[in-house]
Computed example of a mutant assay.
Amino acid sequence: MGLILLEALGALLLLVLIVWWTMFAGRKGGEPPAREDGGVPTAAPTKKSEEKSP
């Protein structure tokens, strides 16, 4: 009985560590700042030279 409880405690501890790691191990600088117009920030801004001209 004690061995089952010890194994359950170990599994619970592993679950808590995995959840903690995924919650708090993010980007070093945090999330990128929000835009002033309320939109979602893009990953990389587009350059004018990359756009096709007619």
Results as ranks from 00 to 15, higher is better:
Arg27Asp: 14
Thr42Cys: 02
Trp20Val: 07
Gly29Val: 01
Ala25Met: 06
Ala25Glu: 05
Trp20His: 02
Val19Leu: 15
Pro45Met: 04
Thr42Trp: 00
Ser53Thr: 13
Lys28Cys: 03
Ala25Gln: 08
Leu3Ile: 15
Leu13Pro: 01
Gly39Tyr: 01
Gly10Ala: 15
Ala43Ser: 04
Met1Asn: 07
Arg27Glu: 13
Pro54Glu: 06
Trp20Cys: 04
Gly26Glu: 04
Glu31Asp: 15
Leu15Ile: 12
Gly30Ala: 03
Pro45Asp: 04
Gly29Leu: 12
Lys52Glu: 12
Met1Cys: 06
Ser49Tyr: 04
Thr22His: 12
Leu17Met: 13
Leu6Gly: 06
Glu7Trp: 07
Pro41Cys: 01
Leu6Val: 11
Lys28Gln: 10
Leu6Asp: 10
Met23Pro: 00
Leu15Val: 11
Thr42Ala: 03
Pro45Tyr: 03
Thr46Trp: 03
Ala8Pro: 00
Leu9Met: 14
Glu36Leu: 04
Lys52Ser: 09
Lys28Glu: 06
Leu17Ile: 10
Pro41Ile: 00
Gly30Arg: 11
Leu14Phe: 11
Pro54Gly: 10
Thr22Ser: 14
Val40Arg: 01
Ala43Ile: 04
Glu50Lys: 13
Val40Thr: 07
Pro41Gln: 00
Glu51Cys: 05
Met23Phe: 14
Ile18Gly: 04
Glu36Met: 04
Glu36Gly: 00
Gly38Met: 02
Leu14Val: 07
Leu15Met: 14
Ala25Cys: 09
Leu14Arg: 06
Gly38Ala: 02
Asp37Met: 01
Glu50Phe: 11
Thr42Asp: 03
Leu14Gly: 09
Ala44Lys: 08
Leu14Ile: 07
Ser49Val: 11
Glu51Phe: 05
Ala25Trp: 09
Gly29Ile: 04
Leu3Phe: 10
Trp20Gln: 03
Val19Arg: 13
Leu3Ala: 13
Lys47Cys: 09
Pro54Trp: 08
Glu36Lys: 03
Asp37Val: 03
Leu17Cys: 14
Leu15Glu: 05
Pro45Asn: 05
Leu3Thr: 14
Pro32Asp: 02
Ile4Arg: 11
Trp21Ser: 10
Ile18Asn: 01
Ala44Pro: 00
Ile18Trp: 09
Ile18Ala: 15
Leu15Arg: 06
Asp37Glu: 00
Ala44Gln: 09
Ile4Tyr: 07
Phe24Trp: 14
Leu17Gly: 07
Glu51Gln: 08
Gly30Met: 11
Lys52Asn: 10
Val40His: 00
Leu5Phe: 13
Thr46Ile: 12
Leu17Phe: 12
Lys52His: 08
Leu13Asn: 14
Glu31Thr: 05
Gly30Ile: 04
Arg27Gln: 08
Val16Tyr: 08
Pro41Glu: 01
Lys28Met: 09
Glu31Tyr: 15
Ala25Ser: 10
Pro54Arg: 03
Arg35Ala: 05
Leu5Tyr: 12
Phe24Asn: 08
Val19Trp: 08
Glu51Thr: 05
Lys28Asn: 08
Glu50Asp: 15
Thr22Gln: 15
Leu3Val: 14
Glu31Pro: 00
Arg27Leu: 10
Leu15Ala: 15
Ala44Asp: 05
Thr42Ser: 04
Glu36Arg: 02
Leu9Trp: 11
Leu3Gln: 13
Leu13Arg: 03
Glu7Met: 11
